[in-house]
Nucleic acid binder design. Structure first.
Length: 889
RNA sequence: GGGUUUGUGGUCUAGUCUGGUUAUGACACCUCCUUGACAUGGAGGAGGCCGGCAGUUCAAAUCUGCCCAAACCCA
């Protein structure tokens, strides 16, 4: 039996260990019915460091759903993945071992990655188990494992065969530090100190005659009108001048209109470039003339494509100047920037140089500014099926609904197909070779997967296209998201059946998966990419529903970040608080909203755990045995069990809709306020007065039910109590969610009786009396039949009388309250007149009608509030519908 | 710069979609109470006019517009 104080330090690890040992949460191998399975596609955390508080938060929400669905009678499939095939894991390895991947053979570096990741993954496992997350540890995966590599390569080949992938030379965002193409989503903004340089190009030839606007004294620089004049442009990146391919002015720019069609000479490097017009120019900026280099930014790329410009590559893959930069060849971009500015200055063509702060796009992994390079990359078609993918998103149920708009806007704004190739040392290789003669693509056989073209031979002896017999392996590997967008297929055991020539699933019953939980920050790429990939492979939307959690903020509602130093360390928190307290905190959020980390939230959790424990002790002492239901149940017991029925249904509804905080607070309020404060106090008195089977039955029944209702959120303490008091062999997490008992009860009477108790408490409190002070004589007028003894017992009333008729009362009308929901629609703009009439007292009550402002309002349109004054002996209290008279002894 | 979401007493939060007038609860605060689980408890009290402005309406925390702030996504 529960004894002494609850000791989470001992209890929680005990059950965590047992849950793992017993495989309590294992998905049964024989489950085949999609209707009784509930599968969760958990996004595998990236192995890039330790798990943080945001993981803790998101995972607890998943786990509450998993536990709840399990109690709904479902076989829950709750896997865990480690996403360790990405660039983040490479970075982790480099910083952990203080090495650079460039210094190692590919295979050697991969081995190091495996070793470092293995350590961190063990840490993930430990943390998840130490939080009692009901993960099925028989179903875990690493995205770098051969099995997953096979799935990922199968996916590539399937899309290739569906003609939804292509290889193309195109400008891609490039990280010169990592020496790889990266995707848009891997970049972020960074404020950087820089200089704006005003540099003079020489006008060689105009395209037309200058207008009047060309000459104006207010201009900072004179407009170039004659050959030899200076055209001033401003740039933060003078090192790109050797890559300058053209200049642009806005089509509506009268000042510079005459330049269009002409040419200009680039300073220092001396090549001539054409001048074009384009509406992407910001004519308010500087002189309204800009240079276009291949490539300085996104606009340069657009111009390059729109105007079919030359390609001048001045910067190589490592951020070093090429031979195109002439004397500057071999310098880094930064060195070249300074050197070129100096030389331009020496040539008299630097007009101004001022320090500015501006935002540059950097690679999120290393904060190095990105470049744009034209390279051969693999792309997945997405732009052609936008409408279909939008529909696919619509088919899912979204918790909360409003998050769907993010998905929608992401698709609306898509401009590029999805680049899935990365030039890295570690990762899943493309199963592709190229004919060294004709560049024909040779794709691996599905049966051979996984393959590594660097060490494996292509499946053909000679090129089917040209007959050549030498092949070059694809050096690139997949983007991380190309694989992590396949987690539903990994989970269901998707594979290719060579004999049947079709894709198969080991566990078809769990696909589409029931739930995809994740943060709102990754709707646009992770969720989107997962939907489209699985949709293309299976023809089905991979999820029935998605649950989007918010971000965890710090105590001051600010974003947690290493640089701010406000990151909450899960280990430190869990050292100090029980896991169940953290679970209580996490359950206090509305799904989709951000949640600030609040220590007091954890403290509140601790209090609830303690309350549950102490109440359990009391229940055990009042009713030491489980008893059968007696033939007759006392009114108060029927009332309590009926109220509990309502809470059972309400809590289930809330959890079904993933309304965690409502479920938590509703249940807590009923347990604490009604069960502990009201019912248990009454039950105590009744036990004193003799052996009461009805009370014993109700105590045990309600208590057991409370344990089950709390089990999804307070996983540990409920397990301890349930096994101790009800069934040592069965986990509470394997029990079914309670069915309502459906007992007939006078709910109104019970509620009125509780209101009377409340009023008597207040009476004692107001007089600074102890709550167990004796009251000699109390009369009640109200619907409390059947509850008299309960009130008498708990409030220590010697004599309690229920009055048949209202006691002698004088009343004055204090207020007439209109029922606006009815009065408003009926009387509209007359309402202020009615109100004024009531306010000034110019009204009459005739029978049940209110006569005011020339109108006659029926009884259902208003309520009369009276102040009652009792004129007899004793003192009067009011409690909802009841009137209470207290006569002192 | 664009989009999405959020903004309620000192703090966190319910209510906002489906407009109706004493705006929910918790924590902190104040007062009182040791009653046979819990003083890490119980009873009670004070504290907000709902980010700001304007509008629609008989009526707005709730609808509309603009502005401000924060978070996220995109440029």
């Amino acid at each position: 039996m529960p004894d002494g104080e609850y000791d989470p330090d001992a209890v929680e690890p005990k059950w965590q260990q047992q849950w793992v040992d017993d495989e309590t949460y294992a998905y049964p191998t024989e489950s085949t019915d999609p209707n009784t399975t509930f599968s969760i596609d958990t996004p595998p955390p990236t192995v890039s460091g330790n798990l943080h508080w945001g993981h803790v938060y998101g995972t607890i929400l998943q786990d509450i759903v998993a536990r709840f669905e399990r109690m709904q009678g479902n076989d829950v499939f709750y896997p865990f993945g480690y996403d360790d095939n990405g660039i983040a894991s490479e970075r982790l390895t480099e910083s952990e071992l203080d090495i650079r991947h460039q210094d190692f053979e590919r295979y050697e570096f991969q081995q190091k990655c495996r070793e470092v990741c293995a350590e961190y993954e063990a840490g993930f496992t430990e943390k998840m188990q130490a939080m009692g997350i009901s993960i099925d540890w028989n179903n875990t995966y690493q995205t770098i494992s051969p099995e997953v590599q096979r799935v990922s390569q199968l996916s590539f080949i399937d899309l290739y065969e569906q003609d939804r992938e292509y290889r193309q030379k195109a400008p891609a965002i490039w990280c010169p530090e990592c020496e790889t193409a990266i995707s848009q989503v891997e970049t972020e903004d960074l404020e950087e100190d820089s200089y704006f340089n005003d540099i003079a190009f020489e006008l060689v030839e105009s395209g037309g005659e200058p207008t009047d606007e060309a000459v104006d004294d207010d201009y900072e620089y004179e407009t170039a009108t004659e050959p030899g004049d200076d055209i001033i442009i401003s740039t933060t990146r003078p090192e790109l001048i050797p890559a300058c391919v053209s200049m642009f002015v806005h089509p509506e720019d009268d000042r510079n209109a005459h330049l269009v069609g002409g040419t200009a000479k680039v300073p220092v490097f001396g090549h001539e470039v054409p001048i074009y017009e384009d509406d992407r120019v910001d004519m308010e900026k500087g002189t309204g003339v800009v240079m276009c280099c291949t490539f300085g930014d996104q606009t340069d790329i657009e111009w390059y494509q729109a105007h079919d410009l030359d390609l001048r590559v001045a910067i190589d893959e490592s951020g070093t100047m090429t031979d195109l930069a002439g004397d500057y060849e071999g310098l880094s971009t930064h060195e070249a920037r300074e050197a070129i500015v100096e030389d331009i200055d020496a040539a008299g063509q630097l007009r101004d140089r001022r320090a500015i702060e501006h935002v540059v796009q950097v690679h999120e992994r290393d904060d190095v500014p990105v470049e744009y390079r034209v390279t051969e990359q693999w792309y997945v078609d997405v732009l052609d099926k936008r409408d279909e993918y939008l529909e696919a998103g619509k088919e899912m149920e979204w918790f909360p609904e409003k998050m769907f708009t993010r998905y929608q806007h992401w698709i609306d704004g898509l401009e590029w197909d999805w680049c899935i190739s990365r030039q890295r040392s570690s990762g899943i290789p493309f199963p592709v070779w190229y004919c060294t003669d004709c560049d024909h693509e040779i794709i691996a056989e599905k049966a051979d997967l996984p393959v590594d073209p660097l060490s494996d031979d292509p499946p053909v002896e000679a090129c089917p296209e040209c007959g050549h017999d030498e092949f070059a392996p694809e050096q690139d590997v997949f983007d991380t998201w190309a694989t992590s967008s396949l987690t539903p297929l990994i989970n269901v055991g998707w594979d290719w059946d060579e004999e049947a020539e079709e894709f198969t699933m080991d566990r078809p019953e769990i696909y589409p998966m029931d739930l995809r939980p994740q943060g709102h920050d990754i709707i646009s790429f992770w969720l989107f990419h997962t939907i489209i990939k699985c949709y293309e492979h299976t023809g089905e939307v991979p999820f029935d529903s998605t649950m989007i959690n918010g971000m965890v903020l710090d105590e001051n509602r600010e974003k947690m970040s290493k640089s701010k130093g406000n990151v909450v360390d899960p280990d430190a928190v869990l050292d100090e608080y029980p896991v169940d307290a953290a679970r209580f905190w996490a359950a206090g959020s509305a799904i989709g909203d951000d949640l600030p980390y609040q220590e007091k939230g954890l403290r509140a959790g601790e209090k609830l755990i303690r309350k549950l424990w102490n109440a359990s002790k009391l229940v055990e002492s009042l009713a030491p045995e489980v008893v059968d239901r007696p033939d007759e149940l006392a009114g108060i017991d029927r009332w309590l069990l009926a109220e509990l029925d309502a809470t059972i249904e309400q809590t289930a509804d809330y959890l079904t809709n993933r309304e965690f905080s409502k479920a938590r607070d509703d249940l807590r309020t009923f347990f604490w306020g009604t069960f502990c404060d009201d019912y248990l106090e009454i039950a105590k008195q009744r036990r004193d007065e003799g052996d009461d089977q009805s009370a014993a039955y109700t105590l045990r029944t309600a208590h057991e039910r409370f344990l089950k209702l709390f089990a999804p959120q307070l996983a540990h303490v409920t397990e301890e109590l349930y096994r101790d008091m009800y069934d040592s062999e069965t986990s509470v997490h394997h029990t079914d969610w309670p069915e309502p008992l459906g007992i007939e009860a006078d709910r109104e009477g019970g509620t009125a009786a509780m209101a009377v108790v409340s009023a008597l408490r207040k009476y004692k409190s107001d007089r600074q009396l102890p709550l167990n002070a004796e009251l000699s004589d109390v009369d009640v007028y109200g619907p409390i039949e059947g509850f008299e003894d309960d009130i008498r017992g708990v409030m220590h009333v010697d004599e309690l009388t229920v009055l048949d008729s209202e006691p002698e009362i004088e009343s004055v009308i204090t207020e007439i309250k209109l029922d606006y929901a009815k009065v408003g629609p009926e009387y509209g703009s007359q309402v202020p007149d009615l109100e004024a009439g009531i306010e000034s007292g110019e009204y009459e009550l005739v029978d049940d009608e209110l006569h005011v402002a020339g109108e006659e309002l029926g009884a259902d349109l208003f309520e009369v509030h009276r102040e009652r004054q009792y004129v007899g002996e004793g003192e009067m209290l009011e409690a909802d519908d009841a009137i209470i008279i207290i006569s002192e002894a």
